[in-house]
Structure formats: C-alpha cells, structure tokens
Amino acid sequence: MNKPKYTIAVTGLNAIDSPGPGLAIIRGLKDAKSFDVRIIGLAYEALEPGIYLHDYIDKTYQIPFPTAGQEVLFERLSYINSEENIDFLYPNFDAELYGFIKLQKHMEEILGIKMVLPTIEQFEERHKVNLYDYGIKHDIKVPKARAIYSTAEIPAAAQLYGYPLVVKGKFYDAKVAYNNEQAAQHFNKISAQWGLPILIQEFVRGSEVNVCGIGDGKGNLLGAVPMRKLYITDKGKAWAGISLDNERLLELTRNMVESTKWQGPFELEYVKTVDDEYYLLEINPRFPAWCYLTVGAGQNQMEALVNLAMGKEVEPFKSYKVGTMFIRYSNDLIVDINEFEKISTIGEL
C-alpha cells in the first residue's frame, strides 16, 4: 500500500527539565503506521535541544516570539512554507496558541497548512479565571473560585470557601494559604509576577489524575488515556506515570468533550477526593509533555490528529493498555559549535 508522506512542523522542542511536548509528539508521528513524515522543527531559542536531535527533526527554523505579533509570525511561516511545503503544524506552547488559533484560517487558505486546534471561544472559556463559570455552564465539577483584584477582597472569599484555600495566578503559579495574612502574602507575590486578577479557589484535597485525549469538534471523544503521576519533580512536572483503568474518569472526559464540542488535543487535570469525587482543575488546550504514553498504551493520538486534519475517517480508539508506564530521563547531547552558529546567525539548521 502506498503511504502518503507528510511534512509536519512542530514547536515546543525544549526537552529540558520542564519539557515542552514537541519531542514526544514527533516520536508519535515517527511511529505512525498510516503515513511517513518529514519533521520541521520550529524553535524560539537557539538552545532548544530538539534543534540538535537530527534523528527526530529533519530541519529546524527559528520563529519569532508571540510578542512580535501575528503579522511577523505569518511572514516567517510563509517563508518556511515556501522552502518546506508544510502539510500540518503542531503548536505546543500555551503562550503561542492564541496567535496560531487566530491565524488558523489564514494559514490553511493561503499557505495550505492545516492545524487542529480548539476554537478561540473554547480557548478563552477554559482559562483559569473563567473555569468556574465554565464548569457551571457545562455541568462539570470544578473547585469554587472567584477572581479578586485586591487583598481587601480576601476575607470575603475566605468566608465562602474556608481555609485552607488556593491562591492562583492568571497564567501560572498556585499556593495554598491557611489564613488571611498568608493569602495576602501569596496575592502580593503572585500578582507582582503575573498581574491581576488573582484567583481564590476552594482547596480540594485529593490525588491528581490527568487525561490526555482528543476531541473531533463535533462532540466525539476520539481517544483518551488517564494517567497518574507516580513521582513529580520539584517543579511539579511528571517524572514517571502510569496509565489507569478508570471508567469514571473516561466518562467525565467524554461528557466534557460532548458538552463543549472540544476540538483538538487536550490535557485535563483532575483531583480525585477521598470520597471518589472528581474535580476538574485545569484544561490545557494542547498535548502534554507525557503524551507519548498514549502511543505506548496503544493510542497514537498524534497520528490520529493528523489524519483527522487530512479528512481521513478516524475511528475513535476503543481501548488502551492499562498499567503502561513512562519514566522520563534526561540526556546530554554533544553538539558542535558550528551547529549553534548556524541556528544563531541564520535562524535555520
């Protein structure tokens, strides 16, 4: 049988101690049975390890940071596309997603580059600050939360949720507070770094479980693998994890995808309480760094997503191998300075 060969561009090549998902996705694509690939890396920094991993990436181009604006990004992508003729693109950073979602139509129509991403409404709605309303709207259990703009609002919020409670930044960072003073301290620290508002969230005690999956945008769940982290790094990232047999979690995920008509990859972060209740903590609108576990467990979700974009019939995965583990390891690459010179000066390698 004749397999097609796709040129697929991937960002998130920072396979460092708090890794982006790029390399995991590339491994999934290389394992694909239904097509062959040529991989184009898209890097922001000259030291992203993926740039130098020539077994995985055929060629890397630097792209401008999201702060440079969509116009500049589009111009750069047009150039890269004129060299490489890209079929599909995988954006992987939270900060870049907004720009890619906005450019999606343009990229498909003018450059012929396909992507599968959530809609801008889905992307905005699931933001931390909006998650509580999102939960109410879609009948998903989420910890109670409210956005506040001043420490004066802390006591009122504390009365509602009681201590301990979680003080969260708009984009990153979360700290547990046990009294008003501590909450105010966290508020000041986090708001200084990430700005306002600050989220005051009910503290839900339990263990964290995550799901990596894809929705087809019509309400169907195409694949999902639940995972529990077995060990985490000091940055809270997974060091090792294992796939779980958890019908309840899959049910919740199926409901979420059906209710929101989620389109594209996602990672759901849940807390499971001692009473076996599941609270949704976060929706990440992209594949997580541990997504290669889904391939190991028998669901090549990265491959499925590309086929979905190419208009192929994609059958939902029916099962996965429970008890599949991943253990992350780091490795020191040996690199010639000429390679660093090339990516640094001409922005290509």
Binding site: I337, F340, E341, K342, S344, I346
Partner: peptide, 17 residues
C-alpha cells in the same frame, strides 16, 4: 569571525553576532 558574522570567544565561551 565566520562568514555568517558569528564570533566565538574560546576563552570565555561567549559568542556574538
């Protein structure tokens, strides 16, 4: 200095363009 305008200082490890 290389043809691409890349300068490497081998004693400090810094590079420049």
């Amino acid at each position: 200095v290389s043809d691409t305008g890349f300068i490497f200082n081998p004693s400090s490890g810094d590079s420049y363009s």
